[in-house]
Amino acid sequence: MQQDERIDLAAQNARRNLTRREFVRKLGVATGSAGMITAAFTGCTLSTSQRAEASEAMVDALGKVPKVKCSKRLGGMEMSRIIICQDWAGDLFDPAVAAGMNFVHKAGYFRTVPEALKKLPRESYYVDTTVDNTSPGHDPTNFDEAYNQVKSELDRTGLKYFDVFRAHYGWNTLNSFNKGDNASYRAFEKLKKEGLVKYFGVSQHTGGGYEKYADMLNAQIDSGLIHTMQLWISYNTSAEELAAMEKAHNAGINIIAMKVYAHGSGKMRGDAAKLTELKSDGMVGRAGLRYVLGLKGANGKPFVDAAVTNLRNFNMFEENVGSVAAKVAMADGLSYHVA
């Protein structure tokens, strides 16, 4: 969403149904063209079976999402370069799994785990839980809140364990992080001993009320305790912050980008040359992901392992997942495989 953009909700909801004949004709034309499958159905409401059929065709046209082998610090986890978020639209989980996405962010918030995941062996995918004692309005020194949240989420979801205990919003001061000697890490250690979590991470936010982003990241890197960081990374991120993120990755910390669209789309939308360079004319979401997942460090290797984005329908899925998916990237002369 571009800043100051006028959003007309009535126009967004003016839709019509398709007969079987119309649907088959549109799908046939779409799969035979180089354009996006979902563009053929703009303004249409698809039935459940039509959605399933279009979804399969879309995933086939996209190809698989490449995976990156994370460092030993994260157990050599092979993580898809775009990860799923718990609050995606429910009908996107099946195509996400089919496209090879294997990590679910915020999985602790599931009221019920989607069938697309339930039918898979638990060991075949990864999940994190965002633990809220560090969220604004909570008490970051509250061990019991952190510990009990994880326990109750496992009881509710039946997920057995969380791969990552992720401190939600992170710490807002260096003092509250306290070089890693804090309630979150102590709760993580206890839960790890009980076999309920494996790795310690943070979803570090920034902005009003937070100390300088690069300082917070450097303190967390220096603690040696963090296995994975989810960070605000977009076309708007400063060079100083990117340098701290590269340093984190060089230290073996897994880096996941968030706020790619929310904070980078305005600048990206206004940069026609960048959109063209990223083979994403008219697709700001795709360009933003290609930008962050293509960021390279001094060693010439990418330092952002994966990105999470808010996907709400098939059109968004195709535009965003198509940023790195094998067939689309290859057709654009790009590759997001990490050697």
């Binding site: 909801n13 839709r15 969220s135 329908n313």
Partner: peptide, 24 residues
């Protein structure tokens, strides 16, 4: 409207507002 149309696309921005409401 999203429930009626079956398209939750327009909810995206409201999710951001919700996260701000939670922390404020």
């Amino acid at each position: 409207r999203a429930k009626q149309s079956g398209d939750s696309g327009p909810i995206g921005p409201a999710m951001h507002w919700a996260h701000r409401f939670v922390i404020t």
